[in-house]
C-alpha cells in the first residue's frame, strides 16, 4: 500500500462520512433530524477545508473554512430550526418512493457517480480520486432527495446539501475556488435562504400547507 499523507487520509475519511450523511438524509423522515444532519455535513466540510488549508498553507482556505462554519453549521441550521418551529412542519409526509427503494436507487447513483469519476480521477492526482467520486455522488444523492420529497422544507435541505457536495468537490480537487467566488456563493445561499423563508410563509398563507402538491397545477384548465 503506498503511503498517503495522514491529512489526506483524513480528508478521504471525511469524504466517506459525507457520503454516509447523504444516505442518512435520504432515509430520514423527520425534518428536524434532516437539518441536524445538514449541520453535521457543514461541520465535516469545515474540518475538511481546514485540513486542506493546513496542508497547502493558503490563508484564504482558512477563511473559507471559518465562513463555512459560521454559515453552514451555525446560522443556516438555526434559521431552519426557527422556520420549522414557526411553520410547525416536523415530519415529511410519506416520500414519493419508499425508503428502501430510494436507497436502492441511491446505491445505483453511487455506482454511476464513482464510475463517472474514474476517468476524471485519472487526470487528477491519485489522492483526490476518492473525493471527486464522492462529491459527484453527494450532489446526485441530494438531487434524488429533492425529487422524492414532497415538503418544501426537505427540498431546501436537499438543495443546501447539493451545494455542500459542490463545495467539497471544488475544495478537494482544486484547493478551493477563488475567494471572491466563494464569498459570492455564500452570499447567494444566504439570500436564497432568506427569500425562501419569506416564500414559505407566503405559501402557507395561501394554501395552509407546505406540501408542494398545491403548487403542482401549473397547467391551466386542471
Amino acid at each position: 500500500m503506498n503511503t498517503i499523507p495522514l491529512d489526506l487520509q483524513i480528508v478521504n475519511a471525511l469524504a466517506a462520512l459525507l457520503l454516509l450523511l447523504s444516505f442518512s438524509m435520504l432515509s430520514q423522515r423527520r425534518i428536524v433530524s434532516l437539518v441536524n444532519l445538514l449541520a453535521m455535513q457543514g461541520l465535516l466540510l469545515t474540518v475538511a477545508t481546514l485540513m486542506v488549508a493546513w496542508r497547502t498553507g493558503e490563508t484564504h482556505l482558512y477563511l473559507s473554512g471559518l465562513l463555512t462554519f459560521a454559515l453552514k453549521v451555525l446560522f443556516l441550521p438555526w434559521l431552519l430550526h426557527r422556520l420549522i418551529r414557526r411553520l410547525e412542519v416536523y415530519w415529511d409526509t410519506e416520500p414519493l418512493l419508499n425508503i428502501p427503494g430510494t436507497m436502492l436507487v441511491g446505491v445505483l447513483i453511487v455506482v454511476f457517480a464513482f464510475g463517472l469519476a474514474q476517468p476524471i480521477a485519472e487526470l487528477a492526482s491519485e489522492t483526490t480520486r476518492n473525493s471527486i467520486g464522492i462529491a459527484v455522488a453527494v450532489i446526485l444523492l441530494s438531487f434524488l432527495m429533492m425529487i422524492t420529497r414532497s415538503k418544501a422544507m426537505s427540498q431546501v435541505v436537499g438543495f443546501l446539501s447539493m451545494e455542500n457536495g459542490l463545495f467539497f468537490g471544488a475544495m478537494s480537487t482544486t484547493r478551493g475556488m477563488p475567494m471572491v467566488v466563494e464569498l459570492g456563493i455564500a452570499l447567494d445561499i444566504l439570500v436564497a435562504m432568506l427569500v425562501l423563508g419569506v416564500f414559505f410563509f407566503q405559501i402557507r398563507e395561501q394554501f395552509d400547507s407546505l406540501d408542494l402538491h398545491h403548487l403542482e397545477s401549473l397547467k391551466e384548465g386542471d
Binding site: 503511503t3 487520509q9 483524513i10 475519511a13 466517506a16 454516509l20
Partner: peptide
C-alpha cells in the same frame, strides 16, 4: 499493512 485510515473499513 501500513497504518492508515481506510474509509471502507470504517463503514
Amino acid at each position: 499493512a501500513q497504518l492508515a485510515i481506510h474509509p471502507s473499513l470504517l463503514f
